[in-house]
Design a protein around this nucleic acid. Sequence first.
DNA 1: TATGAATGAGCGTTCATTCAT
DNA 2: CATGAATGAACGCTCATTCAT
Lengths: 217, 217, 217, 217
Amino acid sequence: MPTTPPPHLSPRKRPRQARAAVTLDAIFEATIQVLISDGPRRLTTTRVAERAGVSVGTMYQYFPHKQALFYALNERYLDLVAEKVEATCRALRGAEAEAMVEALVTTYWQAKTERAEVTQALYRSVVELDNESLIEAFARRVDVATAAMFASVANAAFADLNTVVLTLLTSIFGTVRSVFERNLPVEEADSVLRHLIVMCNAYVRTVQVSVLERERI
Amino acid sequence: MPTTPPPHLSPRKRPRQARAAVTLDAIFEATIQVLISDGPRRLTTTRVAERAGVSVGTMYQYFPHKQALFYALNERYLDLVAEKVEATCRALRGAEAEAMVEALVTTYWQAKTERAEVTQALYRSVVELDNESLIEAFARRVDVATAAMFASVANAAFADLNTVVLTLLTSIFGTVRSVFERNLPVEEADSVLRHLIVMCNAYVRTVQVSVLERERI
Amino acid sequence: MPTTPPPHLSPRKRPRQARAAVTLDAIFEATIQVLISDGPRRLTTTRVAERAGVSVGTMYQYFPHKQALFYALNERYLDLVAEKVEATCRALRGAEAEAMVEALVTTYWQAKTERAEVTQALYRSVVELDNESLIEAFARRVDVATAAMFASVANAAFADLNTVVLTLLTSIFGTVRSVFERNLPVEEADSVLRHLIVMCNAYVRTVQVSVLERERI
Amino acid sequence: MPTTPPPHLSPRKRPRQARAAVTLDAIFEATIQVLISDGPRRLTTTRVAERAGVSVGTMYQYFPHKQALFYALNERYLDLVAEKVEATCRALRGAEAEAMVEALVTTYWQAKTERAEVTQALYRSVVELDNESLIEAFARRVDVATAAMFASVANAAFADLNTVVLTLLTSIFGTVRSVFERNLPVEEADSVLRHLIVMCNAYVRTVQVSVLERERI
DNA sequence: TATGAATGAGCGTTCATTCAT
DNA sequence: CATGAATGAACGCTCATTCAT
């Protein structure tokens, strides 16, 4: 279930030749590099093209405008993260709630930490509203996957599954973002990660109803 | 303990006269309005000046450059929020942990929701690294206040107070940010708020050690 | 009765200060010079600004975009011509048809020849549709003035005044344009001018009905 | 007597093979279509090639550069018109002056009206100086043909044949152009056409000298 | 020979900043 | 002090042209 971008933000062409694919990758990587080293304000088409070893014109053969490039980059990034989360959710079906929580937090955390500078660079580049549609799509995807997972919890259930999922995801995503924003040293970050798991588990325990209890009612 | 900005970002003058204060306020308000209605990309000095009913030249008498204006705006905003949190922390000294948690979440939430568009506009305007120092200062301030509050909890204590505070704040701040970012409808937002309190309380209960227990050891 | 431009083509400000008026004139004159010496294809904002001894930015304070500058230039030019024709038409009220024709042709011819290179440069710069509204407005203005004049002819009348006027103007304007386009040497051009008068007069004589005749009917 | 273009504007090859001729036609037609639908400003090589169903590269096999294409298109167009006028002039040899005038005007008018949008599109695309040589060549051709025709008028002659022909052609061409430029509704355009004939005939009658008269002198 | 990806000079335009008034 | 016209570097983007395939 990949995101379908608004038409005005879609890339101009799908790479048919191998060369084109290479070029496209170079452009994406260059964008990231510029974002990291120069910041979003200095993310200019010329600079990206230069870094990619391509001419501006070439860039414009792949993307109708700068926005579209940026959009595509975010799309790529979020798709990757979403896939990982979905995989985890699939893998944990039928497990116990605690395991789910731990896996969820850890997966998301790792996905974000893998290339920490990229994550940070993208966090800093909000700026344009159009990305909102992207974030929404990402959120929906992950919502669905997570809800499905928690619906399959062994020996328990939730009175208001949707809210629980929403709360979990909102706080996990938010906490991670905050940690990046505050630029915490690794040890502190790790502590927060561990405590975040504790927190989410405490929460889930609180809101979950054991099947026994439920049947008794 | 107000934030002290890096010298290159400080306003040119402290408003001595009433007139100056009025102008300054007009400029700040205009900045916010432009930010909300036109977005961060269209936040130009000319536009702000126009909206504020001042000439660009005048604006440059108060701020050495655009960044400084933006910095000052964020400073003002964060100072306000910090003050509210500090006030709450002071008020809740010696209370029970649960009350503290609820008060903390609610205060922060309200502070952010009071002028929701402003909050959102500022969230969307990250962009410049320089704000990081501001966020850090804010975080430190709130950290200290919160730690002090939780250190005074009645009949209980925390094994690792600092991590607990860090985790709480990171997740509260992050969750709120995520809620804004996802543009959740009010009811869902409210649900998340309530569940966030539940979550934090569950967490605090988990990590707190009763004084009795502690003394026994 | 000055032309009112479509709003998107109107200049940004009316010159309030003397300095501004000078700047505006310099820009107009520079535009003409560039048009003459470099041709419409090389009429770039940079080149105009340079020639005018102004920065590009300044140009954009007077005109929202290149088109608007070009539009305003044509407007100025056509207004001038229209005024001259109108003056002639006013002066010739009640005269004999022959005198009117000669005056009309001569006035238009002179208006166009006065700054021949400018005329030619503008003829060569059609290109953009938007000018059509300008040409139409100009045509209407001159139509009205000319019709009023010919309606006042002494001792004669026209069966179909509007068509006569339209034919006269169309052929006069067209002929002049053709002469410029073919870049005829002066003597030939002058011959054509004289013969154009002969032609128009022969035409007018043919289509006019003497008052005597008319009353007899 | 076909036009011989300046060498730098000539197409790269004369179409030897049928396939080439087809391609060439497609390119020309595409150029016209783009001109009509997108205007001269949007007449890009890529767009033309696309519309013609050819690659840019192929286009450059036929024309060394865009100008050459445009030049060739105009050449084609003017050649067609010139041929029609020449045919008429040939057909009317020895006829009466009035018949000649009417035939001349009608032929030219029809040639231009046949594909009115094409005519208009080309009128709007003057722009480049190089076309002047084309127009000149066209004018010379038509001048010669027309002069030959009027030299053969039955029972009359002209004191200054060249000027008469020049005046006639200049005004006919010019009037037609003006009519297109003003975008007159059909009925008005037709009226002007009829009156143009009247006008030219009145003129010719005025400047022609009957053979009898002449011999008397 | 045909292709179309790649090129890059050059365009129109914006906007933070300055400084004569 | 306040003004706002002037500045010009730097941006996003276009498109005629080339050349490896």
